[in-house]
């Protein structure tokens, strides 16, 4: 049944912090309608939301492609932001370059990337300085 794939695509506006999370919220709604189990929805929602917020606060927006099959949910978030110089360092809990304005909103604790790793079954992150970052999140649906 692998051919049954539902695709969703989003443009994420980098200048509008207020609307960061709209795509994740929509995906959550779609998964609920599809009858996906709450634990799986939670894993997707939290990891995607963290990556979506990152895309807005660190990379001025980008695109998100979600594909849903009966076996897995895959979310690919691609931006043309500044890139990440040292991915190992960025993955460390507590590492953050978020500015004060972001901290005042309750973000910028350096917990996002580690949290994605925790909730995703597979997380791949590739980045090139000056070009952008791509985060791939895969959550498997137990058969």
């Amino acid at each position: 049944m692998t051919d049954e794939i539902l695709s969703l695509n989003y443009q994420v506006n980098g200048s509008d912090l207020q609307s960061a999370g709209v795509a994740s919220s929509d995906v959550k709604k779609v998964l609920r309608k599809l009858g996906v189990s709450p634990e799986i929805i939670r894993k997707v929602a939290i990891s995607m939301y963290e990556a979506e917020i990152n895309m807005v606060i660190h990379a001025n927006g980008g695109t998100i492609d979600v594909s849903i099959s009966p076996e897995q949910i895959k979310v690919v978030l691609a931006d043309n932001g500044p890139g990440i110089a040292n991915i190992d360092l960025a993955m460390k809990e507590g590492y953050s370059t978020a500015p004060q304005t972001i901290r005042e909103m309750g973000f910028g604790a350096g917990m996002g990337l580690p949290n994605i790793k925790k909730y995703a079954d597979i997380m791949n992150i590739t980045s090139e300085l000056g070009k952008g970052t791509t985060v791939e999140i895969i959550v498997n649906i137990p058969q």
Binding site: Q18, G106, F107, A109, M111
Partner: peptide, 29 residues
């Protein structure tokens, strides 16, 4: 909100001194 996303278990009550739209979005997630 970073902590809420990392540690909160589920379906409870959130008390916060923040006041912005991301509080509701985070709570929704």
């Amino acid at each position: 909100m970073s902590d809420v996303l990392a540690f909160v278990k589920h379906q409870g009550l959130l008390l916060t001194g923040l006041n912005n739209l991301q509080v509701v979005r985070t709570a929704d997630m």
